[in-house]
């Protein structure tokens, strides 16, 4: 019996709930992580993943098994589109202080607080990025997708994804430099030029 994602999808299309359960157990955490990184909120991230899987079960024909697209590529697209729609529906981004970032329990209280503040700053900087830049960064950096795979998810060329990644990192540097977490771009260039 085919246990690849695409094989399971064929069975899901025939109404096999067991195959659907296997797919969910195999991928729910992975897509939850993507959703959380895009939304920054645990409850919303879970809602998006649940809605995406229910959509998959209710309308399995949306995935064309014979189109030669990998299930994960297609489902990354579904989840990221749903998360982006939810982001657009929000009036404003939740304050980073209010987000669900847990301090490391092994650290002292002061250190944990400092870490929490740093995490909040990182979150704020990431969520200040334009949607496409944030998605490219999430797919390539956190999900470990290649530029080509991220391009397939985002329906963009490799050059476009590379450009989005570069701009995302430049934007992050600019934002994080304001809070002193990294050196600003200009200073770094001067420093590297000095050592050439």
């Amino acid at each position: 019996m085919e246990d690849t994602d695409e094989g399971l999808m064929k069975r899901v299309q025939k109404g096999d709930h067991q195959a659907f359960s296997l797919l969910v157990r195999r991928h729910s955490e992975r897509f939850y992580a993507l959703s959380w990184r895009l939304l920054g909120n645990e409850a919303e991230a879970e809602d998006v993943v649940q809605d995406a899987f229910i959509k998959l079960w209710a309308q399995p024909a949306l995935f064309r098994v014979d189109a030669g697209v990998r299930f994960t590529t297609w489902f990354y697209r579904v989840v990221s589109n749903m998360a982006t729609d939810r982001l657009r529906g929000r009036k404003r981004w939740a304050s980073p202080e209010a987000m669900d970032i847990l301090p490391d329990p092994g650290k002292g209280a002061d250190q944990a607080l400092a870490e929490r503040q740093t995490q909040a700053l990182i979150e704020k900087a990431i969520h200040a990025l334009p949607e496409r830049q944030k998605l490219a960064l999430t797919l390539c950096f956190y999900e470990g997708l290649s530029v080509r795979e991220a391009g397939a998810v985002m329906e963009a060329g490799e050059k476009a994804v590379e450009s989005l990644l570069m701009r995302a990192k430049a934007g992050l540097r600019e934002e994080l430099a304001k809070s002193g977490l990294v050196a600003p771009q200009e200073v770094r260039h001067e420093r590297t030029a000095r050592y050439r």
């Binding site: 939850y32 992050l172 990294v182």
Partner: peptide, 11 residues
């Protein structure tokens, strides 16, 4: 810095 951003685990 990006690597320090760990997601909150799902339930």
């Amino acid at each position: 810095i990006l690597a320090r951003r760990a997601p909150v685990a799902a339930r």
